[in-house]
Design a protein around this nucleic acid. Structure first.
Lengths: 326, 326
DNA sequence: TCTAAAAATAACAACGTTGTTATTTTGTTT
DNA sequence: AAACAAAATAACAACGTTGTTATTTTTAGA
């Protein structure tokens, strides 16, 4: 049986409503009484009952993070960052690795004030419009008919930074390995962004569809590319996981990076630097991603502003060991 | 304003207590009324208020998972598995990546029924004894004075499986790279377990202290080992992250795995198979880990049994591409 | 068709907290 | 020291739900 404000009231000889006010540092209670109450609360090991609090206040100072694809390495670091920021702003964060619908339902039951939704897994389908009045922000891809405000990444800019970097190193035969999916807008932006960037540089467009986003998809696609008679001098990969697959295929063919082949990967995450081969990569720094997401959500919560806005963030390039002059 | 049982009551013309019973499928209400109520509930988009439920029932059917070191890849997969099992058993799971004390406090406020605590980060210190009455199970290392039931891994058995495997391949000069920490019992078990296993095999004991568990620690230690005049024919690494560092050092010296050097890694996780070099590894399969943890916790919750038990699980070896005959 | 039991529903207290309203205590002015 | 205002505290309703008790309706037996 845990200790409640009534226990504190009894122990300190005041009414429970006074205890409530004292613990909330209200100006309605005498400093001395306040001290006494706070003291006995600590002595008894009081933990406030959030269920009761939420019930009466209809606020929980909690945000829920829906993270259905726990396995995508890129996001782990992002979640940690988001958690830090949320904590800093004096909110709680709870996390669900369940599918979006289940998770949102559960979070609503928990009375969260807002939800951060990582579009995961089956990225090609729009997140369902939950019958929810809880503010939701998604980390995904801007597109028509999307029901919620989105934090997105300027994928075209990212790809063109990758191309520019390689061109500046003298590369002319650059090959893109990624998913050619019309359904997944995020991949589609990268795919067509590559074409535009190469056109701008007056270079021929070569790309291979991975038909998926896992490391094995990247592995198969890389095998195909590296099996051709004339090899590219540089590769651009559409995601961290695909890069992992590429690395493996490259190794099996006894090619060296960057001596025989340069590689630029997607996703700017710390893991890039700790791989067997540290990868040059493009992507939005997770710090700004995290900050933008949390701030968007909190302002949505606090202002109840329903303006359906999209924020598109600008990527950076980090040059590591996987790219060199031709 | 979200819809409550009172709204449903009004809409379906019964009392709210009847609605409550109907929604809980109580035998006290006529099937027909039940149907009507359930229908209008769905029509109105009712979401039960867990705060209210928990307040009155003092149960939340929720377990909290404390996971302070989100970055340790090995655990991601485990968390996903745990979540599946928990969901299967009709509980909710919420997750905190905060430090243990903060997280436990928060979970208590949320009225969770039990807590799963991954000992993280600073592994050498005992988790503090929280003034909590909530059942807690830790995933950590059995040791004296540990305040909670533990799910642990038989590290000695794991190391000896690794040694046996290498010996069967003809290796005699086996080197262990891991942390020699008296404070961190988990590492200590591996460290001394290696000595025992080698003694049993009548082989000389060679090991190098990484002085840490990050990939860079492994990298430095591997550099030292590989810089010696006579190289071992096989390495055993104390953790996934250390293996990553070893791989990098091996690559820089233009050695090949397994042709020039065999490597057995710790931690049996899927990532092992997707690395540039698929690693032979030892460890407890995450499925059984997850299952054991959840079942221990739920039985603790449901029986209120406070027997302070330790469960030590047996590891398996998975042979992949990083080991071969001498 | 009346009565008694059974079935169905309604009413109400309780969970731990906050905010509002009512009461008591303290302090100030005369 | 009486009168009044201000300050401090207490009392109470409410939040949405469940479980218990009270009331009403239905059913069955004579």
């Amino acid at each position: 049986m845990s200790v409640t404000i009534k226990d504190i009231a009894r122990a300190s000889g005041v009414s429970y409503s006074t205890v409530s006010k004292a613990l909330n540092d209200s100006s309605l209670v005498k400093p001395e009484t306040k001290r006494k109450v706070v003291e006995t609360a600590k002595a008894l090991g009081y933990t406030p009952n959030l269920s009761a609090k939420n019930l009466v206040s209809k606020k929980s100072r909690t945000i829920g993070l829906v993270w259905p694809s726990l396995d995508r390495v890129a996001l782990t670091e992002l979640v940690a960052k988001i958690n830090n920021i949320v904590t800093e702003k004096n909110y709680f964060m709870i996390l669900s690795v369940n599918a979006a619908d289940h998770a949102v339902k559960m979070f609503e039951s928990f009375q969260v004030d807002g939800i951060l939704l990582f579009e995961g897994g089956i990225e090609n389908q729009l997140p369902p419009l939950f019958s929810s009045s809880v503010p939701i922000i998604t980390y995904g891809v801007a597109r028509n008919g999307h029901p919620y405000p989105i934090v997105d990444v300027n994928h075209k800019a990212a790809i063109s930074k990758a191309v520019e970097h390689l061109v500046s190193l003298g590369h002319k035969n650059i090959h893109y390995i990624g998913e050619d999916s019309h359904a997944d807008k995020r991949q589609y932006q990268k795919w067509t962004g590559f074409q535009e960037a190469m056109n701008n540089a007056h270079l021929p467009v070569n790309q291979t569809d991975t038909k998926g986003l896992g490391w094995y998809d990247g592995y198969l696609a890389a095998q195909k590319v590296l099996g051709q008679e004339s090899l590219p001098t540089a590769l651009i990969s559409g995601s961290y996981d695909i890069s992992i697959g590429i690395l493996r295929a490259v190794k099996e063919r006894h090619l060296r990076i960057p001596e025989d082949l340069s590689l630029v990967s997607y996703d700017n995450i710390p893991q890039m630097a700790s791989l067997e081969t540290a990868l040059t990569s493009v992507g939005v720094p997770i710090d700004s991603l995290a900050e933008t997401m949390v701030e968007s959500l909190l302002s949505l919560i606090e202002t109840k502003d329903t303006a359906h806005s999209t924020k598109r963030l600008d990527p950076e390039i980090h040059i590591r060991k996987s790219t060199s002059i031709v």
